[in-house]
Simulated assay, not measured.
Amino acid sequence: MLPTTVTAVPALPLTPNGKLDRDRLPAPGKPVSVPAPTGDLVTALTGVWEEILGVPVGPDDNFFELGGNSLYAIRVGTALRERGLPAPSMRLLYTHPTVHALSLAMADE
């Protein structure tokens, strides 16, 4: 899930009891656009996931909801290395389980 807006505040407003005072929060700012995944990495990830999972894969489909597990995750890394691409760490795949999120995270590394 990605937020539609992000509003920076210098500090969170609190009630006298130390809880978040939602009434004093500023209105949300302009929506933040998230770049759509493109390129060879997205194509490779989509192809590898479809090959290993045996189902069609979209950019926002969750690896684990499509039937992925830890053994399939290792196979994904192996298949990407065989194609001459970097393999994501298991932690990266678990924390970014969609093609979109994983491709962005791998590009940042």
Rank of each mutant, 00 (worst) to 15 (best):
M1C: 07
L2K: 11
P3F: 04
T4A: 04
T4M: 03
T5G: 04
V6R: 10
T7W: 00
A8F: 07
V9H: 01
V9R: 02
V9Q: 01
P10A: 11
L12T: 04
L14C: 05
T15I: 09
T15A: 10
P16F: 00
N17Y: 12
G18C: 01
L20R: 09
D21K: 05
R22N: 09
D23S: 14
D23H: 12
D23V: 15
R24L: 13
R24A: 15
P26H: 01
A27V: 13
A27D: 10
A27N: 12
A27T: 14
P28F: 11
G29K: 05
K30M: 12
P31R: 10
S33H: 12
V34K: 14
A36K: 11
G39Q: 12
D40H: 12
D40S: 14
D40L: 14
L41Y: 13
L41M: 15
V42W: 11
V42M: 15
T43A: 15
A44Y: 12
A44F: 14
L45G: 15
L45E: 15
L45K: 15
T46N: 14
T46D: 14
V48A: 13
E50L: 11
E50G: 13
E51G: 14
E51C: 11
I52Y: 11
L53K: 09
G54N: 06
V55W: 04
V57G: 09
P59C: 02
P59M: 00
D60W: 00
D60T: 02
D61Y: 02
N62F: 00
N62Q: 05
F64M: 02
E65R: 09
E65A: 09
E65H: 03
L66P: 05
G68C: 04
G68E: 01
L71M: 07
L71T: 08
L71D: 06
Y72E: 11
A73K: 04
I74R: 02
R75Y: 06
V76P: 05
G77W: 08
T78W: 11
T78L: 13
T78A: 14
A79G: 13
A79V: 07
A79M: 09
L80V: 06
L80R: 13
R81W: 06
R81G: 01
G84L: 06
L85I: 09
L85S: 08
L85F: 11
P86T: 01
A87R: 02
A87I: 09
P88Q: 02
M90L: 12
R91I: 04
L93N: 03
L93G: 00
L93C: 01
Y94N: 01
T95C: 03
H96E: 06
H96M: 02
H96G: 00
P97A: 03
P97M: 03
H100S: 15
H100K: 10
L104Y: 04
A105S: 05
M106P: 02
A107T: 08
A107L: 09
D108A: 14
D108W: 09
